[in-house]
Design a protein around this nucleic acid. Structure first.
Length: 162
DNA sequence: GCCAACGTTGGC
DNA sequence: GCCAACGTTGGC
């Protein structure tokens, strides 16, 4: 399948580990520790300037919390070759680093967190990977239209239950 | 904390 | 190459 170059993405992070507030404080952050081939391959497609939805997973509620921007393209993830790192991978070498990381910078915290349940109920977002049951992909492409819809949603008050 | 869904590993 | 077992992710 041929996919057109994407310039919009979604990354997941557990806020108890690293939240949008942490990214704001840090300003920029190396997105290391990704240990999934599909996620790595998407990071290889990332380019500086690409916009990223910052998703809080394993949270209450989980959902899109903010926006980030890619500031550096993929390069070898040094934590893969650091025996002290929780993400150490003994198979990684200088010639064959296996794992990659990008760098992200804080852009904004959304006016309100957009819960997963609301994303699922929003027309136009049916195709989003994060909406699929059992989806575990931590780096995923998002279409420009989906990105825009999510941004617009955050500017509106939360819909009433029902 | 539970557990379904998933990706990876390894025996065969 | 198949697939069961395992460890992990992530919604709830």
């Amino acid at each position: 399948m041929v996919t057109p170059p994407s310039r919009h993405w979604l990354v997941k992070s557990e806020p108890s580990v690293f939240s949008i507030d942490d990214l704001q404080k840090a300003g920029r952050e190396s997105w290391d520790g990704v240990r999934n081939y599909q996620a790595r391959n998407f990071m290889l497609e990332m380019r500086p300037g690409d916009l990223v939805l910052f998703y809080h997973s394993n949270a209450s509620p989980s959902g899109v919390a903010g926006i980030a921007r890619v500031t550096r393209e993929a390069r070898p993830d040094p934590t893969a070759r650091d025996p002290e790192s929780p993400w150490f991978d003994p198979r990684a070498s200088e010639e064959r680093p296996i794992w990659q990381m990008v760098e992200l910078e804080f852009v904004q915290k959304l006016p309100r967190l957009l819960p997963l349940g609301e994303l699922k109920r929003t027309s136009g977002l049916e195709g989003m990977e994060v909406n699929r049951k059992g989806s575990r992909l931590s780096v995923q492409p998002v279409t420009p239209e989906e990105f825009r819809i999510v941004q617009d949603l955050a500017d509106r008050p939360a819909p009433k239950e029902g």
